[in-house]
Amino acid sequence: MKARRHYEKGLELTRALSEAEPTNVGLKWDLAVSYNKMGEVAQARGQLMEARQHHEESLARFQTLAEAEPTNAGLKRDLAVSYRDLGEVAQAQGQLEEARSHYERYLGLTRELSGPNPTNADLKWNLAIGYNKLGEVAQARGQLVEARQLQEEALARFQQVSEVNPTNASLRKDLADCDATLKRLERARDPSQKARKYLQAAASNPQ
C-alpha cells in the first residue's frame, strides 16, 4: 500500500506538471514511467485490469516519444519493456494470442537494440527473456515443439550471460527455471516415458 500511495502521488504531481508544460519531453517520459510503476504495483497485487490500464497508458506515451526520436536507444528499450509488461498481464489473464503479440514486439525491439551491440550482456539477457516468454505462451497453447525450440533459444542465451555474470542470483534463477522447463518439455515429447517410469516403479515395488 505504501508503494501504491507513493506512486499515486508521483503520478498526480507529474500529470499536473505535464499539463502545465505539454511540450516538455522530460515530463512526458516521467509520466510514462509513473504509469508503468502504477501498473507494476497493480500487477503485483493481482489487480490485472488496473495493471492493464496503467501499462496501456505507459505504452501509448512511450510510443509517442519513441516515434519522435526513432534513434534513441533508451526510448526503444522503454517501449520494449512496456510491451513485455503488457504481455505478462495478458498472459496472466489467459489472453494468449495477445500475450504472444506483445512478446513478439518486445523481442523484435530487443533484437534491433542488440544488432549494433552483439556483446552487450544485458541485451542478451533481454533476448533470452523474450524467447522464454514466447516459449511459455506456446506451451500454454499446446504447441510443444515450438515451445521447446523457443526455450532452447532462451537457455542458450541465459547460459552465455551466466558465464559473464556467474554470481548474479536473478540470472541464475532464470537459467535454472528455463532449464527445468526444457526438461519438462523433453519428457512430454516422449509419451512412453511415463509408462516406463510406472513400470520401473511397479518393478521396484511388487505387490
Rank of each mutant, 00 (worst) to 15 (best):
M1Y: 12
K2W: 03
R4H: 08
R4P: 00
Y7K: 01
G10V: 06
L11R: 09
E12Y: 00
L13F: 06
T14L: 03
A16P: 01
S18P: 00
S18I: 02
E19H: 08
E21I: 03
G26H: 08
L27N: 08
K28W: 11
W29A: 11
D30I: 01
S34P: 00
Y35D: 08
N36E: 13
N36G: 15
K37T: 10
M38C: 13
V41T: 11
R45W: 13
R45N: 13
Q47S: 14
M49D: 15
R52K: 12
Q53A: 15
Q53D: 15
H54T: 11
H54F: 13
E57Q: 15
E57G: 08
L59D: 07
A66C: 10
E67K: 10
A68K: 08
A68N: 06
A68C: 10
G74D: 10
L75D: 03
K76C: 05
D78I: 07
D78S: 08
D78P: 04
V81D: 04
L86I: 00
G87V: 02
G87W: 01
E88M: 07
V89L: 05
V89S: 04
A90T: 04
G94K: 06
E97Y: 06
H102K: 01
H102R: 09
E104W: 02
R105P: 00
Y106A: 03
L107A: 07
T110Y: 07
S114I: 03
P116D: 05
P118R: 05
P118W: 09
N120A: 07
A121T: 14
A121K: 07
D122R: 15
L123I: 06
L123E: 08
L123C: 10
L127Q: 13
L127W: 09
A128M: 13
G130L: 12
N132T: 06
L134H: 04
G142Q: 09
Q143D: 12
Q143A: 14
E146Y: 09
R148F: 02
R148Q: 06
Q149K: 12
E152T: 09
A154H: 09
Q159C: 01
Q159G: 02
Q160H: 02
Q160Y: 05
Q160A: 14
V161P: 01
S162E: 02
N165W: 12
N168C: 00
N168M: 03
L171F: 08
R172C: 01
K173A: 10
L175R: 07
A176V: 13
D177S: 15
C178F: 14
L182F: 12
L185Y: 11
L185F: 13
L185D: 05
E186W: 11
R187V: 12
R187P: 07
R189Y: 12
D190P: 05
P191V: 10
S192H: 14
A195E: 15
K197E: 15
K197C: 09
L199N: 11
Q200E: 15
S204K: 14
S204N: 12
P206T: 08
Q207R: 15
